[in-house]
C-alpha cells in the first residue's frame, strides 16, 4: 500500500492524471485526466479506435501505461503485485464477450472469486452467489453450464460474477455490443438497477438511451484523448465541440 496522490479529494474513487500510453510507437492514450467521484455513473463513447476500452482497462491493469498516474480508491497503480491485487479485488469488470468459464457451472463461476481470492467458506460463497443470481433474475440456471445459456443470460451471469466480489467500482466494456437486439434490454435493466443503488460505474457503450437515463456524466473520446465531457442533458442537446456534434449526428440517426 503506498502513498495517496496529494491532490485527491477523499470523495474521488478514481484519479487519473496525465496518463499516456503507447502501443510500440503508437500513441494510443494522450494526456488523459479524469476524476470519478464515489457513486458517479460515467458513460464513455466514441468511434472505434478512440482508446475508450484501453482507458478503462488501465484501471484494473489489464493494460499498462507508460506515463502518468492512476489512483484507485486510495491505492496508487504502480508496478507492485500487491497493489495490483488490491485494486483488482475492488474493481469489477464486465466484458463484451462475457468471458464466463465454460468448464464450470454458473454457480461455480460465481463462487470462484469469493472462495479463492477472498478465502470464504463454500457455503457462504454459495449464499452470496445465489443472492446475486436472484438479483439478475436467473436463480434457476445455477447448475447449468455457460454454453447452455443465451447471450443475455450469460452477460447477466457475468455481471453477477463481478458483483460477488463486492467491488466499489464496476467497469463495463461494451457489455451489450455482442448481444442480439432482444436481449439488450434485460442486461441494461440490470445495469440501471445497479446504477440506481449507487454503484460507481464506468461504462463504455453505444447505448445512448442508457446514458440519458442513468449517467451523471458523458465523456466523448477520439484519437486517444478526451474531447468533451458533460452532463447527459447538455451533452446531447448542446455539444460544445464540432467533433462531438459530428459523432452524435452519426450515431443518433440510424
Amino acid at each position: 500500500m503506498t502513498a495517496i496522490s496529494s491532490n485527491s479529494n477523499t470523495e474521488d474513487v478514481i484519479v487519473i492524471e496525465n496518463l499516456n500510453k503507447w502501443y510500440g510507437n503508437f500513441h494510443v492514450l494522450r494526456d488523459i485526466n479524469l476524476r470519478v467521484k464515489k457513486g458517479e455513473r460515467i458513460v464513455i463513447c466514441g468511434p472505434s479506435g478512440s482508446g475508450k476500452s484501453t482507458m478503462i482497462r488501465c484501471i484494473n491493469r489489464l493494460e499498462e501505461f507508460q506515463e502518468g498516474s492512476l489512483v484507485v480508491d486510495g491505492v496508487e497503480m504502480i508496478e507492485d503485485v500487491k497493489n495490483i491485487e488490491t485494486i483488482r479485488k475492488d474493481v469489477g469488470m464486465v466484458f463484451q464477450h462475457f468471458n464466463l468459464f465454460p468448464h464450470l457451472t454458473i454457480l461455480e463461476n460465481l463462487t470462484l472469486g469469493p472462495i479463492w481470492v477472498q478465502k470464504k467458506p463454500k457455503a457462504e460463497a454459495e449464499e452470496i452467489a445465489m443472492k446475486y443470481l436472484e438479483r439478475v433474475k436467473i436463480p434457476d440456471q445455477a447448475n447449468k453450464y455457460p454454453g447452455q445459456l443465451s447471450g443475455g443470460q450469460q452477460q447477466r451471469v457475468a455481471i453477477a460474477r463481478s458483483l460477488c466480489m463486492n467491488p466499489n467500482i464496476m467497469l463495463f466494456d461494451e457489455p451489450t455490443s455482442a448481444l442480439d437486439p432482444e436481449m439488450i434490454k434485460e442486461v441494461l435493466d440490470v445495469m440501471i438497477e445497479l446504477a440506481q443503488e449507487g454503484m460507481t460505474m464506468l461504462c463504455v457503450t453505444h447505448e445512448m438511451g442508457f446514458a440519458k437515463k442513468v449517467a451523471d456524466r458523458v465523456i466523448f473520446m477520439d484519437g486517444g484523448e478526451i474531447v468533451e465531457e458533460n452532463e447527459p442533458e447538455a451533452f446531447f442537446s448542446n455539444p460544445q465541440v464540432d467533433r462531438t456534434q459530428q459523432f452524435l449526428e452519426q450515431i443518433l440517426n440510424h
Binding site: N20, W22, G24, N25, F26, H27, R30, D31, Q66, E67, D222, G223, G224, E225
Partner: peptide, 8 residues
C-alpha cells in the same frame, strides 16, 4: 487533435 508524441 493534439499531436502524437513518440514513446518514451
Amino acid at each position: 487533435p493534439s499531436s502524437p508524441r513518440s514513446a518514451p
